[in-house]
């Protein structure tokens, strides 16, 4: 029960901190690389997820990616 406010605070902090973070659109050369995508190698991740889903009690957590390549 005590965890929920903590999560909310974390989210709020990370959001408010966002405005001062980041790069200019032309500084995304490294982030645009395929291997820098948050869900790089989706097939590996899906296979792993399936194994761990069937062998452990917890699952999920990772989402579809945002960001990564800034190429619009």
């Amino acid at each position: 029960m005590k965890r929920k406010p903590v999560i909310v605070i974390c989210l709020a902090l990370s959001l408010s901190a966002c405005a001062s973070l980041g790069v200019k659109p032309w500084e995304r050369d490294l982030l645009a690389k395929d291997e820098m995508a948050l869900s790089a190698d989706p097939v590996d991740l899906a296979l792993d997820d399936h194994i761990y889903f069937s062998k452990e009690a917890a699952s999920g957590g990772r989402a579809f990616a945002g960001g990564g390549c800034g190429c619009n």
């Binding site: 974390c10 989210l11 990370s14 959001l15 966002c18 973070l21 980041g22 790069v23 500084e27 995304r28 050369d29 490294l30 982030l31 820098m36 948050l38 957590g61 990772r62 989402a63 990616a65 945002g66 960001g67 990564g68 800034g70």
Partner: peptide
């Protein structure tokens, strides 16, 4: 989910 570019080398995600 929130995805945040930190700098030219770092990207972070919190879900």
């Amino acid at each position: 989910g929130v995805t945040q570019v930190i700098n030219r080398r770092t990207i972070m995600q919190l879900n």
